[in-house]
């Protein structure tokens, strides 16, 4: 039984780490600010959630689990608010998003210049 929980916790931590690294790569790779926000969203929701669930499986103390649940709920409630505030400030101050057809040209010229 203990071994099964250990393995499940390890799998959760592994998935969480993979999602976080993917989000980090996406933040460096995506072409403009608004698309980068989507990459940050991955690390903030399921990446953080999986790591915290993995930690919950490892602990026996009920207070520790309650605190981890609290951190998870805070992350899930706070981060959409912060990203919405950021996106709204950006679009009100005139930062134009790179949209579909223009974006192809930009990435091509960027990759050719490297």
């Amino acid at each position: 039984m203990d071994v099964a929980i250990e393995i499940m916790s390890a799998i959760c931590l592994l998935i969480g780490s993979f999602l976080c690294v993917s989000g980090g790569v996406g933040v460096l790779r995506f072409p403009d600010f608004y698309t980068r926000m989507h990459a940050v969203g991955v690390t903030d929701t399921l990446g953080a959630g999986m790591i915290l669930i993995g930690l919950m499986l490892q602990s026996q103390d009920i207070l520790v689990i309650a605190k981890l649940v609290m951190i998870l709920l805070m992350t899930l409630f706070i981060n959409p608010t912060a990203s919405h505030a950021l996106a709204k400030a950006a679009i009100h101050n005139g930062l134009k998003p790179v949209l579909d057809n223009k974006e192809r040209n930009n990435t091509e010229s960027e990759s050719s210049s490297r």
Binding site: V27, F33, R36, M37, V40, A82, S83, L86, A89
Partner: peptide, 10 residues
């Protein structure tokens, strides 16, 4: 500037 704030948030 917004990229930097986003990075700080992350």
């Amino acid at each position: 500037l917004y990229d930097r704030i986003l990075a700080v948030n992350m």
